[in-house]
Simulated assay, not measured.
Amino acid sequence: MPSTKLSSAVSTEVGMVGYGQSPYYKRTDQSLISLLAQTSRLALDSAGLQKSDIDGISVCSFVLAPDNAVTLAEQFGLSVSWAYLGTAGGAGPVAAVLNAVRAIEAGQASTVLCLAGDNYDIAGHYKLMDQFNRSLQDYGTPNGFGGANGLFGVVQRKHMATYGTTRAQLGRISVGQRRSAQLNPNALLRGPMTLDDYLNARVIADPIGLYDCVLPCTGAEAVIVTSLDRVDRSKRIRILAGYEQHNHPPGEIAPLSGGWELFRDRLFSDAGRTHADIDFVQAYDDYPIMVAIQLEDLGFCRKGEVGEFLSRHDFSYDGSFPLNTNGGQLSCGQAGAGGGMIGLTEAVRQLRQEAGEFQTAAPRCGLVSGYGMVGYGHGLSSSAVILENVK
């Protein structure tokens, strides 16, 4: 089955023009709707647009039900001609942006508010995973599968055994991102971390340790998609190319690759860019091993050679390979489905050079990748987009 693609003929005059991020909380009395509203206002202010400009809405969330995109529009007082509810977990927000572009090109909407977020704590996350879908509910949970930690412990062990990847190499991702997070006031985990701290942390699901795992939290993210000519030039972030792919490889338990490998070449070809043009990567980082697999499948190194790639790079915001420049989910926390959009909001912030102390030096082009919807043994959904500022 061919991958879903953003047409190579897509107008590059549709892009992202505003972004917003709520505070992240370990626990809060605020409702999810209030957090989504807060980040929507921030995104509108960032774009210089008004609420009345919005005529499309998308939302990705695990705990919004029984509400959805249409009832969210009602609660926001919006009349919309296009509504989209994400179903691809951490790959959903990138896919939502791509579908918003298509909706604008088709004349179904002119300005789309894309939202993602959740409101839960650690206990709520575990409960969610136990009932995440039929395969886990009926087969994983009754057999004590250990949640996502257990599933991805198997993936990491398999990658280590197959390619010789080491924990010390993977730990460089967590350590580099933590250095960036120390400068980000919205990161929940900002304490210093050395590679020894990473390696000596308690085991959670062998070989996964404490600092391989995200902290479930509450928060919301937003971006606004519209024609670039509607805003000041300094606010414009062009979408050069993007793809989504689901259930690849089919039928394989704990695969060491994902859908990115199917669309990688077309992604860069459509964008008219090479890997050398990418100034930063915002990769979905539920676990370092999945960041490593994304780097392989997206072509930054060959399959099985990511260990050496990790050994020779610094992954902080000012390192040799800027990665998840705000600290990523591993240090900021994972706000449910918001974890799939934190990379998009950070990419817009970096490309507009508004990141403050953790600003990467003069970035022009960045890549954001998504991953999610854990099924029976692996994540089912992959997505990626290449973005560029208009300077």
Rank of each mutant, 00 (worst) to 15 (best):
E252K: 11
I224W: 02
L228D: 03
A220Q: 02
I237A: 02
D232T: 14
W260Q: 13
P255R: 11
V225E: 01
V231L: 06
S269H: 10
P255Y: 07
S227G: 11
V225T: 02
H248S: 13
A241L: 08
P249N: 09
R266V: 01
R238D: 01
G259R: 09
L262Q: 15
R230A: 09
P249F: 06
R230H: 11
D265N: 11
R264F: 00
R238K: 15
Q245E: 12
I224Q: 01
H248F: 12
V223K: 01
T226Y: 12
H246W: 04
G242T: 09
L240H: 14
K235D: 03
L267K: 05
V223S: 03
F268P: 04
D229K: 10
G219E: 04
G219A: 02
E244W: 11
R230W: 06
T226A: 12
L240N: 15
R233F: 09
A222N: 04
H248A: 11
G251L: 06
A222H: 03
F263K: 08
V225H: 00
R266N: 13
K235H: 12
I239T: 13
P249H: 07
W260T: 06
D229G: 08
K235F: 06
G259Y: 05
Q245P: 00
L228R: 13
L256N: 10
G259L: 08
H246E: 05
Y243S: 15
R238T: 12
N247I: 08
I224T: 01
A254H: 14
A220E: 03
A254Y: 12
S269V: 03
P250G: 09
L240T: 13
Q245W: 02
W260I: 00
V225N: 00
S269P: 00
R264V: 00
P255E: 01
S234Y: 08
W260R: 13
L262A: 06
T226L: 09
A222T: 04
S269E: 07
V231I: 14
L256R: 13
S269C: 02
Y243W: 14
G242W: 08
